[in-house]
Nucleic acid binder design. Structure first.
Lengths: 340, 340
DNA sequence: AGACGATGTGAGATCGATCTCACATATATT
DNA sequence: AATATATGTGAGATCGATCTCACATCGTCT
């Protein structure tokens, strides 16, 4: 049995009034007689009238939906953010559409285009961020609110919520240097990604400050998945003179490195020291526990959503750029290295 | 500068044709002169015409969006499923709206109501599943395709993709019994949740088969988060005669139990043996590695999405009920217990 | 009593895309 | 030459909700 959802027309007919009156009664605006209003309410109730948000949206030009495009929903970092955004959106009577760019610019662009044509009200995006950000600027130009998270995009003048990647990475590497390490490896993901660049830059500046020459053989690049990170770590540590310490730029890669070390029979922190960017659930389960640079993940999604809804409410001042501090959490995965 | 997106009317005006002709040219149907078509294409190009999917949807009655409502997007199990569904949806030119019921029936209902009024084409839902499933049956009645995942809902006649929870749990507990354990704890989440009930049922039947009396003091209930599981585990093991082994019903709770044991100074598997339902990334990083019952997670989302799109394409045979097998993966978190 | 405001209701336009129908031409067929 | 058939195009209806406007009907004030 396929019964089409009841329309306003059906309700009006049942209540013996015009569509206009029915609309007034249901949305309580304008003048409606008490008795009429009751009749309409009753009719709506009886038919299970729910209203067609599509039609409403077409009229008003806006759908109560916000979009969130992340790099990868499987990364717990983004999952947490998406979750927080969803909660806040729901509080404001909005739904959330989630897209995953999988770090492909083309995918980000097509996702955005497809969501834009839905008249989605605003976006929270973790941009893949390379040169061409016309698709993002296009949103701004059409006055569609956009909040960037985790990463900023060059030349796009909008709100953003990021963390101090460079400072965090520097703290991590300085700590390693302070513990006597000089051959410090970096396991990073694609250089096109903003955080990857910033974290590398922190890594480099810490090395430079300690007068340690940058060495490309100490740097491995892989996609941000556990599996790819395993391979990259194994390659990095299969060299003749491998690093004595490793800094990984996100939690999936940290986990990949851990797996790789286990499979290679390399012991932490005895053989190799490890610091990861971004804390994760199980960092304290391992033996030793993993030292990390932690970011205030719960703040990020909430801050971004808060800003987005302020913009939707009409706030129109200069773009905010929020940058949260990171914190070095020392656990047991780094050991002091004496001499070389 | 706020330029409204170009409409078909704009394109038609620029190309000096009627809206009808412009539509024909852009969607290539009906008869259109070559020259006219070119003109229209050029005009559309020039104006950056993208079309308003809302208006199209209002006309056609369908928005190319599917919805996915999970219990908690932060649970890696659901994150993985959502990811897989999103990928498949995108392949079919659909977007995905994700909602999280947070295991609240009321939230599931309101989420579904709000998405239904968007004329969303179909749903994949992990139902909170208690008695009243009218909201789900309502979808079926209106011919909106619905695929249940992870859990089935009583009295709702639709496709479903689940795993053999009872069998998996029984395997786990039988294994513990085979290793000499008799005081076997169960850390489960809310009994209203289908998987929780099924897994408990497997736990009980394994005990019964071994003639071990069920003992409520061996069972702890908590929400499915790492934090709640920590507390519940501590309570469970603070009794005078605590379990010698623990079976946890999902990966977040397994992680909570691990954290709790660590904080209590309880050593695995020496003091307590542990088996978790659902494998997780770091299960092999811990020392010892965690023995688990694994489910074919990548299959679940894909299977559900595949079925959903078949239904959307018009397939109309009897509902499928897919039930995947689980696998006991023996690692090192269970030790043999001699005597009592 | 006449006028003005408050109250209540309906007809019709609108949002943007699509589709049916009617009406043109042009070419082909007898 | 007359009739079919193919080809092109536009006017207007439609999807469902909302809003403006016009038109009632009251009551009240001078």
């Amino acid at each position: 049995m396929v019964r089409k959802p009841a329309t306003l027309k059906d309700v009006a007919a049942l209540a013996n009034v015009s569509r206009a009156t029915a609309a007034r009664a249901l949305n309580s605006y304008g003048y409606v007689g008490d008795e009429t209003a009751q009749k309409v309410q009753a009719a709506a109730e009886k038919l299970g009238y729910r209203g067609n948000r599509l039609a409403q949206a077409l009229r008003s030009g806006q759908l109560p939906i916000v979009g969130c495009i992340v790099g990868d929903i499987q990364n717990p970092f983004f999952a947490r953010i998406a979750h927080d955004v969803e909660v806040l959106a729901r509080e404001r009577g909005h739904n959330l559409v989630i897209g995953s760019s999988e770090e492909e610019l083309a995918q980000e662009i097509s996702l955005l285009a497809s969501l834009r044509s839905l008249s989605i009200r605003g976006f929270i995006v973790a941009p893949t961020s390379q040169g061409n950000n016309a698709h993002l600027q296009g949103l701004i130009d059409e006055d569609v609110p956009l909040v960037l998270i985790d990463r900023v995009a060059e030349g796009v003048d909008c709100d953003s919520v990021v963390v101090d990647n460079e400072g965090g990475a520097r703290k991590a590497v300085e700590y390693l240097i302070g513990m006597g390490h000089t051959r410090i490896g970096l396991l990073q993901d694609d250089m096109r990604i903003f955080t990857s660049r910033e974290r590398r830059s922190g890594y480099r500046s810490a090395l430079a400050a300690a007068a340690i020459a940058a060495d490309d053989r100490m740097v491995a690049v892989s996609q941000s998945t556990v599996e790819h990170a395993v391979d990259a770590t194994i390659r990095l540590f299969s060299q003749k003179s491998p690093p004595t310490a490793l800094f990984t730029v996100d939690s999936l890669m940290t986990q990949g490195a851990l797996l790789a070390f286990r499979s290679m029979g390399v012991s932490i922190p005895h053989d190799v020291s490890l610091i990861g960017f971004d804390d994760f659930n199980l960092a304290t389960f391992t033996d030793p526990q993993i030292t990390v640079v932690s970011q205030p993940v719960p703040e990020i999604g909430r801050a971004a959503a808060r800003i987005l809804f302020e913009r939707l409410a009409g706030k129109d001042d200069a773009p905010q750029e929020i940058r949260f501090e990171t914190k070095l959490i020392v656990r047991g995965s780094v050991s002091r290295r004496s001499g070389v």
